[in-house]
């Protein structure tokens, strides 16, 4: 198997792991086994998988309330995630956190957060540590479009720029802050373009195309490791389940819009591409469903 198809299969498997875990959690939520909130990552899997593909164990990830995918992509076992949402001692946070407080610092999963914005600043802090301690590690902040009109975004990107911190800012623009449309809440709806205001590089990618994400992240992370400073990547995407399990979904967006985006499923797109390129057989993909 050549390197390209191997990468494709790794990414495929990683995305399926996230998708299947999320669907398991969604079913568990319906059965009352998840006690609190459950924000699934369904539809956005390409972003966590593509970015984390280039991370080492020592690199650190700071995440947001929709963070199951980041935890899994960084190497957390699905069982630890599920146990956490079930409120068990065997969960990654010992049952103290639930969906929005996933910690596994041993693998660089530095926490998801119930507050929008702080992960951006904490990633700057990770970058600052690595600069101070002369390490080649990098820090990654994953956040949604809801975070980019918050002061933390402005302050964090500016600090990362002036001190050239080894940080990657990944905006998962799924177009809604809970239910508030991004084009309503943004004077400038182009997130990637905002990087220019801080003197750093901003890139827009199709967040449902895992290769696009993976390649942009690879370049940005290499630049950060070399002392070239931070990058902002805006990944255009869409969550195809409700904001949180059990919430109404069609008061602020239409069933048709959701269906359109389901057709752009990042996992199916990659599967198709792998088959068309002769890099995988359908049965290979089935065996990667986990």
């Amino acid at each position: 198997m050549d390197a390209t198809s191997e990468t494709g299969l790794i990414l495929y498997r990683r995305m399926q792991l996230i998708r299947q875990t999320e669907l398991t959690l969604a079913r568990a939520h319906q059965r009352g086994l998840v006690h609190g909130a459950c924000h699934t990552y369904v539809g956005q899997e390409a972003i966590a998988a593509g970015v984390c593909h280039h991370l080492r164990r020592e690199d650190v990830v700071f995440s947001t309330h929709r963070g199951h995918g980041h935890a899994l992509a960084k190497g957390m076992e699905p069982g630890e995630l599920i146990a956490e949402l079930f409120g068990k001692e065997t969960g990654c946070s010992g049952g103290r956190g639930g969906s929005m407080h996933l910690f596994k610092p041993e693998i660089g999963m530095m926490g998801t957060s119930g507050i929008v914005g702080p992960c951006i600043l904490q990633a700057c802090g990770g970058g600052y540590s690595f600069k101070l301690l002369d390490s080649a590690n990098v820090a990654v902040a994953f956040f949604g479009d809801g975070a980019v009109n918050n002061g933390a975004f402005h302050e964090g990107l500016n600090m990362a720029a002036i001190w050239k911190l080894p940080v990657l800012f990944v905006c998962e623009n799924n177009q809604f802050a809970t239910e508030v449309p991004f084009d309503y809440s943004s004077g400038n709806p182009n997130v990637a373009q905002r990087a220019e205001q801080f003197g750093i590089c901003g890139i827009e990618v199709d967040g449902n195309n895992v290769h696009e994400v993976e390649q942009a992240a690879g370049r940005a992370l290499e630049q950060a490791r070399q002392g070239g400073g931070p990058t902002l990547i805006e990944c255009k995407t869409y969550r195809t389940r409700a904001h949180a399990e059990g919430m109404a979904d069609f008061t602020y967006r239409t069933r048709e819009a959701v269906d359109q985006w389901k057709k752009r499923c990042p996992i199916e797109q990659l599967g198709q591409a792998l088959i068309e390129a002769g890099q995988a057989e359908p049965e290979d993909l089935n065996s990667h469903r986990g």
Binding site: F62, G111, L121, Q122, G125, Y128, S129, L132, G151, M159
Partner: peptide, 20 residues
């Protein structure tokens, strides 16, 4: 620092989590 207390306290938090 720039005048951004929230920013550099948040940064400090992340720094303290990562070895400094």
């Amino acid at each position: 620092t720039p005048i951004c207390e929230r920013g550099f306290v948040g940064l400090g938090c992340g720094a303290a989590m990562t070895g400094s």
